[in-house]
Amino acid sequence: MYLGLEAALGLLLLASALIALRLKNLLAAAVTLSVFSFISALIYLVMGAVDVAFTEAVVGAGITGVLFIVVLFHTSRRSID
């Protein structure tokens, strides 16, 4: 198994999650969330869950990201926290 790779990706995932929550620019946060999703898809792939990885890539990084951005365009893009 790729334990090292998994751990490294896991840390990356953790970092992107924290960044997504910390960013005050919501648009950037949404993009970071897409990146987060994409990294998680990579981890699934590493762990042999090809179907899950594929779905997460299409949905998490794709559809959710698009919807997020559309929503933010129509509401406010800044957050105070």
Binding site: V50, D51, G62, V66
Partner: peptide, 22 residues
Amino acid sequence: FGPGGGFQGGAMLAASILMLRL
């Protein structure tokens, strides 16, 4: 036979339509 299926395919179809919408 491999990764894929209704849900992923449906999501991609939706993505293509969303692309046109956008």
